[in-house]
Design a protein around this nucleic acid. Structure first.
Lengths: 144, 144
DNA sequence: GTCCATGCAAAGATTTTGCAGGTCC
DNA sequence: GGACCTGCAAAATCTTTGCATGGAC
């Protein structure tokens, strides 16, 4: 089994799409891939300080369009980003510390099938965020 | 059967919570209740023009905290608001025109039960947005 | 060499905050 | 009358854009 770093894979996909691989771009990808938690555009820009804010925002949008990162809606309704490891997945979000993790949900198709039956909509996609307390916060006795 | 306007109901609930009912506040509530589509804070502020922006934002946040309005995440990830007609519900969002409607989803509990089984999280809430084309856009042959 | 990407700084968009004055109860 | 609310304007965020320069291919 060949082990390819997450970042390398993302870079290849960008190259395949005809995007140029510049140093700032690689650094953004590297950083995004190395974080397995969620982050805001501003945080990312701060961490990659020498790189211009605009470049970070532009690259983030590029990755989003390519489906290489996804947005997460936190419990308070604010939005942040996260590397997208799978084609389609959902998020489990901790209401206390804001940690997120990907989760696979079984039986979602059954729910969507009901929507198709009950409405006139042509259903093509969906987003599900499940909120709760992560094991650590639960143990700490955190509330919300 | 007594018919009580939507707005009256919301105002009562605010009063019951000990909030003062001022003229600007009623106007915001009135406006929110009268729209059955989604809107942004900025749109609302513009429509209620003589009322200060800050007041609109503050009132909106108040209504959100009280669960009288809810946030909707559109297909492009942007967030807007909508009167919350039911205690708990989900949204059906049109990818083409951005219209939204409330939808009841059956069997969601089964999906959540699986999450509880499969993770260590203490699951307490969830958000589901279903994306598609509304009947009108579908008929128009709109794509996305 | 060509075209795309970058960086900067400025503009734009959105939301929050301090404070003086006004209003509800 | 007291506490809360409002409006204004300024500030704080967050994000996008124009343009000249630089780098990938």
């Amino acid at each position: 089994m060949t082990v390819v770093s997450e970042a390398e894979g993302l870079v290849s996909r960008l190259r395949d799409q005809g995007f140029k691989i510049t140093s700032p771009r690689s650094q953004v990808v590297e950083r995004v891939a190395s974080r397995d938690d969620n982050f805001t555009a501003e945080e990312l820009a701060a961490e990659l300080a020498p790189i211009g804010r605009a470049t970070v925002y532009r690259t983030l949008k590029l990755l989003l369009d390519q489906g290489l990162v996804c947005r997460v809606v936190l419990g308070d309704g604010s939005v942040c980003y996260r590397a997208s490891h799978k084609a389609h997945h959902h998020h489990l979000v901790c209401l206390s510390c804001g940690a997120t993790e990907d989760v696979h949900l079984a039986d979602v198709e059954a729910v969507l099938a009901r929507v198709r039956e009950a409405t006139e909509y042509d259903v093509v996609d969906h987003r599900i965020e499940v909120y709760g307390l992560c094991p650590r916060c639960k143990r700490r006795g955190a509330k919300r």
